[in-house]
Nucleic acid binder design. Structure first.
Lengths: 145, 145
DNA sequence: TCTTTTCGTTTACATCTGTAACTTTTCAAT
DNA sequence: ATTGAAAAGTTACAGATGTAAACGAAAAGA
């Protein structure tokens, strides 16, 4: 079974709401409305619309609890992040992904454990790494770099 | 002077065209139309519309060459990639960025030089890395992890 | 010069997004 | 039972996006 939810079709605004629901596990619209207030100046209506759209994209499931709905995610935060990241990197030139990741490492606040983990993966990867990665910008030898 | 072009407002389709122009340095609309055919089944009209929108977003500059235009990028591929990456990572929980980068390392085809570069950066970073990175999903201690 | 290509410009149109007001339904408290 | 508050549902609307046809102008070939 392939991914039921396509996280790449969540908009930035929708993503903000998802973060709240991922963090809390589940939430009613009023909880979401309350929590989003700290970050965004949206009206209740706006939040409800976004929640509804997330439901229609199958990113959220609802369960009725009396008069209100409890929203819970249909995709994990981790899976969603993976999809987004993959989508973005798929747009980039193969040859340039490496330096982009390097920049990311440089610019991101990483824990000691994160770093050690990366070091382990890299050490292992080095053993079979190619001398160069081919560019795939244009078909044929005509490519960029 | 801040970034004149906001690459995060380029759509996926527009990005495809940018890649061609980045790779070639500059190109006429007919060159772009020809080259995109290998990847996308767009009509000439569609490509022209997208080029025009890129010009209106200041992502491309045109110089007239006889009857036609030569398009060239107003932002480097590298800067655009940086902006996109930064935008995406800004949406993620601080605490989870590390493992996301680790996955990226695992899933990306990297050259030996790329890997060594990352290793250097990481070794250096480890010396001042925090034990843990705080989650920033919700305001206050109420955060996720 | 007349015609055919080749570009660029204008117009189109459905869907998606950001943003929200207005309306209806349904608990909960008189 | 009545009413007020809370939640959900309906409708709206401008701008962005995907996708393109049609029209016009200019260059190149006949």
């Amino acid at each position: 079974m392939t991914a039921v939810v396509d996280a790449t079709e969540m908009t930035t605004s929708e993503w903000e709401l998802m973060r709240i629901i991922w963090t809390k596990g589940k939430a009613s619209s009023s909880e979401v409305i309350d929590l989003i207030k700290a970050k965004k100046d949206w009206t209740e209506s706006t939040v409800k619309t976004l929640l509804r759209r997330l439901v229609s994209k199958s990113a959220l499931t609802t369960v009725k609890d009396g008069r209100r709905f409890i929203y819970s995610p249909n995709i994990t935060e981790s899976d969603a992040m993976d999809q987004m990241t993959a989508e973005m990197f798929s747009r980039m030139c193969n040859m340039k992904k490496g330096s982009e990741i390097t920049k990311l490492i440089r610019d991101t606040n990483l824990s000691q454990a994160d770093i050690k983990q990366m070091q382990a993966v890299l050490a292992n990867k080095l053993r079979t790494a190619p001398k160069v990665v081919e560019c795939n910008c244009l078909p044929g030898k005509d490519s960029c770099c």
